[in-house]
Simulated assay, not measured.
Amino acid sequence: MLLTACGTAEPGPEARPAMWMVADADTKIYILGTMHAVPRGTDWDAGRVTSAIEAADELMMELSPAELAAAGETFRQLAQRDAPLAIEARLSGKALTGFRALEASGRSFGEDGLDDWAVMVLMGQRVAQNAGLSSADGVETGLTEKFEAAGKPIGGFETAREQLMLFETLDLQTQRILLTRAAEEAGDAVKEVGALTAAWGRGDVAALETVINEDIDSVPAARKAILTDRNRRWSAWVKRRMERPGTVLMAVGAGHLVGADGVPAMVEAEGLTVMRVQ
């Protein structure tokens, strides 16, 4: 979910991510599934996305630009352990081997002084880098540039602290399970991220749902905190926002938009009509 990596002018792949629309007589909300980091130079903003960007009066993302800028410092504040704990005391066997191999692909994670969830986040960033993904080319970065250039307002559903506290407040057993799974699967992670990115680029929501479910279904506490509860809050926001006129582009991680507890399904369950428009 937290993928970061820098851009290039080289032409990149074409992506047509899934997008939905909720509309009534005087209000339209486009709901676009994003990837926070994508292959460098990816062309993701053509097709119906261009029309949605031009039509929208405002942009809503998981984090506003100011909160995104604050995320690094907030991470450093929350990630620290009260007392150091060696990774060998947390992982063993295949998990420890996978962790060490991933760490060897770049600088040390400094994991002894970090909470389990924070180590997992840094591992995810390293996988993204190794997969050639770029946050500078990510959807949120591009949308921010376009809306700021047009002088249109940009809002966020959460603060950086609220978002990271979703991990910080997970019980220690759940954090350890997530870290162990990430380490055990580190050897295949670049390939899996590539498959996830390709499915996003095709707008293949069935494939996305399969990948998301395989990744998190075995950890119910994490699914509830990181996906389901947030989707419910965002769906409630859509319903309230439909009471005011205007056109909004809502852009959140594609994993939040698939399946029975994805935002489109939850909005539809509230009695609103949701149309897939890309």
Score class of each variant (00 low, 15 high):
residue 131 A to V: 01
residue 131 A to S: 02
residue 132 G to T: 13
residue 134 S to G: 07
residue 134 S to T: 07
residue 134 S to I: 01
residue 135 S to Q: 12
residue 135 S to D: 07
residue 135 S to R: 14
residue 137 D to R: 11
residue 137 D to E: 02
residue 137 D to P: 10
residue 138 G to P: 00
residue 138 G to L: 03
residue 138 G to D: 01
residue 139 V to L: 15
residue 139 V to K: 14
residue 139 V to S: 12
residue 140 E to H: 06
residue 140 E to V: 00
residue 141 T to C: 05
residue 141 T to R: 15
residue 141 T to F: 15
residue 141 T to M: 13
residue 142 G to Y: 10
residue 142 G to S: 10
residue 143 L to D: 02
residue 143 L to F: 06
residue 144 T to H: 06
residue 144 T to P: 00
residue 145 E to H: 14
residue 145 E to Y: 15
residue 148 E to D: 09
residue 148 E to I: 02
residue 148 E to G: 03
residue 149 A to N: 04
residue 149 A to L: 09
residue 150 A to D: 04
residue 150 A to H: 05
residue 150 A to R: 06
residue 150 A to Q: 10
residue 152 K to D: 07
residue 152 K to I: 06
residue 152 K to R: 14
residue 153 P to S: 09
residue 153 P to I: 04
residue 153 P to N: 12
residue 154 I to M: 13
residue 154 I to K: 14
residue 155 G to E: 04
residue 156 G to I: 08
residue 156 G to C: 11
residue 156 G to E: 09
residue 157 F to E: 00
residue 157 F to Y: 13
residue 160 A to Q: 08
residue 160 A to M: 07
residue 161 R to P: 02
residue 162 E to Q: 15
residue 162 E to F: 14
residue 162 E to Y: 11
residue 162 E to L: 12
residue 162 E to V: 08
residue 163 Q to M: 10
residue 163 Q to K: 06
residue 164 L to Y: 14
residue 164 L to T: 01
residue 164 L to R: 05
residue 165 M to A: 02
residue 167 F to D: 04
residue 167 F to L: 10
residue 167 F to W: 11
residue 168 E to F: 14
residue 168 E to A: 14
residue 168 E to C: 09
residue 169 T to Y: 09
residue 169 T to L: 08
residue 169 T to D: 08
residue 169 T to P: 01
residue 170 L to S: 13
residue 170 L to Q: 14
residue 171 D to K: 09
residue 172 L to S: 13
residue 172 L to I: 05
residue 172 L to V: 13
residue 172 L to A: 07
residue 175 Q to N: 11
residue 176 R to E: 11
residue 177 I to M: 04
residue 177 I to K: 09
residue 177 I to D: 04
residue 177 I to G: 08
residue 178 L to D: 05
residue 178 L to S: 09
residue 178 L to T: 02
residue 180 T to H: 08
residue 181 R to M: 12
residue 182 A to I: 00
residue 183 A to P: 03
residue 183 A to L: 05
residue 183 A to K: 04
residue 183 A to T: 06
residue 186 A to V: 11
residue 186 A to R: 11
residue 187 G to L: 13
residue 187 G to N: 13
residue 188 D to A: 14
residue 190 V to L: 07
residue 190 V to Y: 10
residue 190 V to M: 08
residue 191 K to H: 06
residue 191 K to Q: 05
residue 192 E to P: 01
residue 193 V to H: 06
residue 193 V to Q: 07
residue 194 G to S: 03
residue 194 G to E: 01
residue 194 G to N: 04
residue 195 A to H: 01
residue 195 A to R: 03
residue 195 A to P: 00
residue 196 L to C: 02
residue 197 T to M: 09
